[in-house]
Design a protein around this nucleic acid. Structure first.
Length: 114
DNA sequence: AAAGTGACTGTTA
DNA sequence: TTAACAGCCACTT
């Protein structure tokens, strides 16, 4: 257990609150987790998630351009992410992008539970 | 213990 | 529209 476990738990609590059919950006999750400007840390936190067995809707976090962030280190979970989102009713354009104006989560900060 | 790396992002050109 | 770049920080070597 590292001293940053609570930091990651804070991130996971935010991600859990993204509603089905919507997405949030890494930067947005960072901000809501009191980690403004530290979007990369959110990437690390999600990288650590067990994609098979977790109750965290990790697929609902995309980058600021509305794209899925691809990496060979993800061993295919990046492509899995797209199909999971499509199953939630989110569509991708020809460039592989999500329309954030349509699907971005707009939480009421006073309702965020952490 | 210093240096490299990455599921990031806003600015700049 | 894109791409390079500089901050960013936890983690690994």
């Amino acid at each position: 257990m590292s001293s940053n476990t609570t930091t990651y738990n804070r991130i996971y609590e935010i991600v859990r609150q993204i509603p089905q059919g919507f997405v949030a950006t890494y930067g947005q999750v960072a901000e809501l987790s009191n980690l403004a400007g530290k979007a990369r840390v959110v990437g690390y936190a999600l990288y650590r998630v067990d994609m098979q067995n977790s109750d965290i809707p990790w697929q609902r976090v995309v980058n600021a351009k509305g794209e899925i962030s691809l990496s060979p280190l993800r061993f295919g979970t990046d492509y899995l992410q797209r199909s999971l989102l499509e199953n939630e009713g989110i569509s991708f354009n020809d460039a592989g992008k999500i329309d954030l104006r349509k699907y971005l989560w707009h939480p009421n900060k006073s309702q965020i539970f952490d």
